[in-house]
Design a protein around this nucleic acid. Structure first.
Lengths: 220, 220
DNA sequence: GAGACTACGGTACCGATGTACAGCGTCGGA
DNA sequence: TCCGACGCTGTACATCGGTACCGTAGTCTC
């Protein structure tokens, strides 16, 4: 399968998204509208290129007859295969489990507040991701404010300097992670707050819930 | 869910088959053709009945916008019920138009880099939303860092203290917005940077592109 | 017998859409 | 430097396709 340009990929992505979300393909003008292309011909050029490169087919003189072609590697395109498209329109559903530093984890997990869906692109590949609401200012110098949502990829280990969600006692907390000689240091990003030091002898892997892969703040 | 007549069931079945096999819904005339109905009105009667009984929805004055509605008992209608069409309406597709303070607006708008989809909940109701990538540290004290994505609701006015995307000369920039006696003040959230003052006589409404309604930062 | 709902035929209108043609600028080879 | 691919603007046009309005019939219920 020939390579696509950025622009062509964007067109393909929008077509795929349209089919997924609305159940029918877009028109030339809808595509143009979405991508800021004013001329139907501009869009048609892209479609011709995508046809030529084997990514989609369409029928003459009929509206909305775009069909995605499954690519050789099996990575979809085609709508009927229920598995998510590979590079395109890859969505992830993220449960917002609770608030960090606001209660027991168990408690939080049992009362998912809400669920949001965002583009997989925004949280990177792979992994099981959940969301938490931040309470407090302990990570403010890292640009994580009170009320922000953080998206967390579940994993038991972390690298030096990663922002993690860790269990300290019964509380989940958001901190920088540093593994040092004989202890784990959980460092707030706030000059007024002291790091939490945990002797490695007391440390268990299960205490890391995951690594923060995204931060979202709603304004207004 | 109300009962269907033989004929209505046949219409529904054909629509479903069309979506399954071809990837897009049929037109009125295609339905009529298949079922031996010569009048578009005959078909339209059926579609109206199916709408009224809650089996499908469609959009006005747009071709092939039939959508099957999942029936209460879960027994399809929807051809491949992979994802719940239920809250699909709550998704929003956001084109990432460019980088703030990195070039001309026109330039940016004409070259959308990419598109992301996120839950409408995250950006609030209504409005046309686009995305920008932040370049620079001018809003760092507001927790908006270099490389962050901001989601912007298009609007020409702003309230005191809103974070806006504004046109200053040819550049789009992200700043706090303050309307004062005889000038507009665009205030960076960075102690080392000076506000931009624009006499109200020089100010035009078109200079505000929109209000920042969300900030996203990808980590890791 | 009046009034619904169903199930069409026919026709007309007009907005929605795909197609075609003419250009323009950029960019990376050959 | 010419050429092809890319990525558009702009315009014109014919068809596609949804909607509206007018009729006819059969069935079923009240």
């Amino acid at each position: 399968m020939q390579k696509l340009t950025e622009r062509q990929r964007a067109v393909l992505s929008f077509i795929s998204a349209s089919i997924d979300e609305r159940g029918y393909p877009p028109t030339l003008r809808e595509i143009g509208n979405h991508l800021g292309i004013k001329s139907t011909n501009g869009v048609n050029d892209h479609l011709r290129a995508l046809e030529r490169k084997g990514y989609l087919t369409r029928e003459d003189m009929k509206s909305r007859t775009l069909r995605l072609v499954r690519s050789a590697d099996g990575s979809s395109s085609a709508p009927p295969p229920p598995e998510p498209d590979n590079d395109v329109a890859d969505m992830i559903e993220i449960p917002i489990l609770g608030r960090v530093a606001a209660g027991l984890l168990q408690e939080a997990i049992q009362h998912p507040e809400d669920t949001v869906r965002i583009d997989r692109m925004l949280v990177g590949r792979g992994g099981d991701v959940f969301g938490l609401r931040i309470v407090g200012e302990s990570m403010i110098d890292a640009g994580i404010h009170d009320g922000d949502y953080v998206f967390v990829r579940k994993q038991l280990t972390a690298g030096r300097g990663d922002i993690v969600i860790a269990l300290v006692g019964d509380e989940a907390t958001c901190k920088y992670f540093f593994s040092e000689r004989d202890h784990i240091r959980l460092q707030p990003a706030n000059e007024t707050m002291a790091p939490i030091l945990i002797p490695k002898t007391d440390w268990r892997g299960t205490q890391i819930l995951g690594v923060v892969v995204g931060v979202y703040r709603r304004l207004h």
